[in-house]
Write a protein that binds this DNA or RNA. Structure first.
Lengths: 196, 196
DNA sequence: CCTTTCGCGTACCGTCGGTACGCGAAATAC
DNA sequence: GTATTTCGCGTACCGACGGTACGCGAAAGG
């Protein structure tokens, strides 16, 4: 099982996802044609359609990669703490920091819902970083830190607040972004703290 | 200045915006072609391009109409109260109720940012319902109900939370939507109340 | 009336996402 | 080791889409 064939397949996939991600991030899904993507990846449309279900399928793979990276950052930040409340704060902050990258924001927050439809986008979020938010809130309710309440609506409210905040920060000039991020984080932390 | 010409112009605009809004709301911006829109409106592409700057221009007009209606509902709800805090609550609730309509959510929250770009979408929101949220928060700070703080970040957080909640509600079955709305509203009201 | 303006229909174009099909090399069978 | 199948991918092509150029006819202005 040397797998020279499987290896080539993986290389093509990687090249397509990598180049498509860079192009989608800078110019948006609608403004990038398949011809440009396959040329940048050094393959042809035949290869693309052999690996993905059209342009939306390629975008789905790109978005899944981005979402996985963001979720990874959230988990890594949360694991650095033992206290559930500190884990929530660290996870939320990590999500905000990661999503503030304009490339991430563009793919995951602007084009994602429109290209895949909101339901499919939500399902992907629920499978990655969104799940961790729900779990963190459930843990806090179980520990009595938060009063018993339906956590799903609250998770949506908090997730939406962070998404919008990330979008706003992604649109600010890079020089003043760190300061703006701290201001937003201060408000978000105050909002979270008010929940206890 | 009878204006039979201006009258015809207005009629064409109305027909295009009206039919485009219905089509965009049910099938999304990307899945509706100009040929279908102009056929539904009883005109041709020549008329469309004479009145709007292409497909995105038509969408901008549709979105502006939707945003104005939502902002109108927010203002009407707020004006029914005298107390600034009650005005904020009523305005937020009205925004949530209006944006929960799947047609509104699809146009204003899903396709809007992707089609116009997030910056332009935000500017339009800032000119309609978003402005009222900022003003309400500023009034509350001025009255000492809220502690002095930067209201812009907070407005983004709250606005994002309501947008995401509306999207979620718009995706639920219509029969159980009212109950879900009350649950979400309960959480949102609790969040707002925790700010005082 | 005669000229200008203007709303809009018609015909056309380049580009896009998507498909059909064939080739050549790797995997598999015997 | 050869025959056969599988499969990754390139090539050529198609229909549909957004957008443009241009002309006509009626209203507006003098």
């Amino acid at each position: 099982m040397a797998g020279v064939r499987e290896e080539q397949r993986a290389r093509t996939r990687r090249a397509l996802v990598e180049r498509a991600r860079a192009l989608f991030a800078t110019r948006g899904y609608a403004d990038v044609g398949l011809a440009e993507i396959v040329a940048a990846a050094g393959v042809t449309k035949g290869a693309l359609y052999h690996q993905f279900e059209g342009k939306t399928g390629l975008f789905r793979a790109v978005l899944a990669e981005v979402a996985d990276e963001v979720a990874g950052a959230v988990v890594a930040a949360a694991e650095a703490h033992d206290d559930p409340w500190a884990q929530l704060l660290a996870g939320c902050r990590a999500f905000l920091v990661a999503s503030t990258d304009p490339a991430v924001a563009r793919i995951a927050l602007v084009d994602g819902p429109a290209v895949l439809g909101w339901a499919q986008w939500r399902a992907l979020d629920e499978a990655t970083s969104g799940r961790h938010l729900v779990e963190a809130l459930e843990t806090l309710v179980a520990h009595g830190v938060l009063s018993p309440r339906p956590v799903a609506p609250l998770a949506h409210l908090l997730g939406g607040a962070m998404n919008e905040a990330a979008l706003w920060l992604a649109g600010t000039a890079e020089a003043e972004r760190p300061a703006a991020l701290e201001t937003v984080w201060g408000e978000l932390a105050a909002l979270l703290d008010a929940l206890r």
